[in-house]
């Protein structure tokens, strides 16, 4: 019984189906509750539960890499992001605005009907789909040896389809750039004065502080482990980065600022390091007479692991910056000196 996936193999088909059915119903129920909740806080909490249950579903689908990402990134970090921005919205902005009965009934039908039709059509098409040509799983197995990594998902992400991954790393960096672009500029800024967002700083909780102090190093260790293990088992740079960012978020809510202010230049350097390293590695291969982003078989393993290390640190910096939100307005426009 080394993994959960293994242990479920022993279950009888009937028990598996029953378990899957219950899981599916639970997931659908939490999603329904979250989508129809009038309170944002409730919706977010249900969304986190939804994400954790979904991680279980990914395990059942035989996709442990996705399960880890779902738990760490999907449910964990997205939940933190939602909660963080809830803290910045004023009380009356965190509930659905009231509507008359007629309005809400109209909305329900006008949106509900087409959506049910769309979902039904999708289910029909997907269920009746007949594969004509097999996928590339066989090719992945055949060529995996040339990538040096034994986790097929990592082989796809960092070698066979590394262009996708490069662009995805840039997307995350771009989210930070765009968020930082939201800072009001100079004295000519129109509209009501923007209050610098107050960092949520609850009174110090001794028990929480004790717990977080002990958890933080452990969680960092988990992050490093996830990066290291990614080449051979489920895990990888993104999952690692999400765990590290979650530690930061935890330190933040317990009133301890661990990281330098995200706006500082060293942090910005770290944020761009992942994209820059990825692109530079691709160009270096070109300069060595190979193809853009190519990984020669002899050094592929080393390059993938080291690149994933840089990516993990850099993505963690980006995620931390996203959790912390836009930096405070520049000095000349803020009220405080």
């Amino acid at each position: 019984m080394s993994t959960l996936a293994m242990s479920t193999l022993a279950m009888s088909p009937l028990a598996t189906t029953a378990f899957d059915g219950m899981l599916a119903v639970l997931i659908a129920w939490t999603a329904w509750q979250s989508v129809t909740s009038r309170e944002v806080f409730r919706a977010v909490m249900l969304f986190v539960v939804f994400g954790l249950l979904l991680a279980l579903a990914w395990l059942r689908l035989g996709a442990p890499d996705v399960a880890l990402a779902e738990a760490a990134v999907g449910a964990g970090l997205t939940g933190v992001l939602f909660l963080e921005s809830l803290g910045h919205l004023r009380r009356n902005k965190t509930v659905e605005p009231p509507e008359t009965v007629a309005q809400s009934r109209l909305r329900r039908w006008a949106v509900g009907l087409p959506v049910v039709v769309a979902g039904g059509l999708l289910a029909m098409v997907a269920l009746r789909l007949e594969p004509r040509v097999p996928g590339i799983a066989g090719l992945v197995v055949r060529h995996q040896g040339e990538t040096g990594v034994s986790n097929p998902v990592t082989a796809v992400l960092l070698d066979f389809r590394s262009t996708d991954t490069l662009l995805e790393v840039v997307v995350l960096l771009l989210a930070v750039i765009a968020t930082y672009g939201l800072v009001p500029h100079g004295p000519a800024h129109h509209g009501p004065r923007v209050r610098p967002p107050a960092t949520p700083r609850p009174p110090r909780q001794p028990v929480l502080v004790w717990f977080v102090r002990r958890l933080a190093p452990l969680a960092l260790l988990v992050g490093v482990y996830l990066w290291w293990v990614g080449s051979s088992a489920p895990g990888g740079a993104f999952q690692a980065a999400a765990v590290v960012a979650a530690v930061f978020a935890l330190l933040r809510v317990s009133g301890m600022e661990a990281a330098p202010p995200p706006n500082a230049r060293p942090m910005r350097l770290l944020m761009v390091a992942g994209s820059v390293a990825f692109v530079s590695q691709g160009l270096a291969m070109l300069a060595a007479g190979r193809v853009f982003l190519d990984l020669p078989e002899t050094v592929a393993y080393g390059l993938i692991v080291s690149l994933e290390g840089v990516l993990a640190a850099s993505l963690a910096a980006c995620l931390i910056a996203l959790v912390a939100g836009a930096p405070r307005p520049p000095r000349q426009s803020g009220e405080r000196p």
């Binding site: 909780q205 028990v207 929480l208 004790w210 717990f211 002990r214 958890l215 452990l218």
Partner: peptide
């Protein structure tokens, strides 16, 4: 151990 400490901490936070 992690589950025990986490639930104790969170229970404390909630009660507080």
């Amino acid at each position: 151990a992690l589950a025990v400490t986490a639930s104790a901490t969170i229970a404390n936070l909630f009660a507080n």
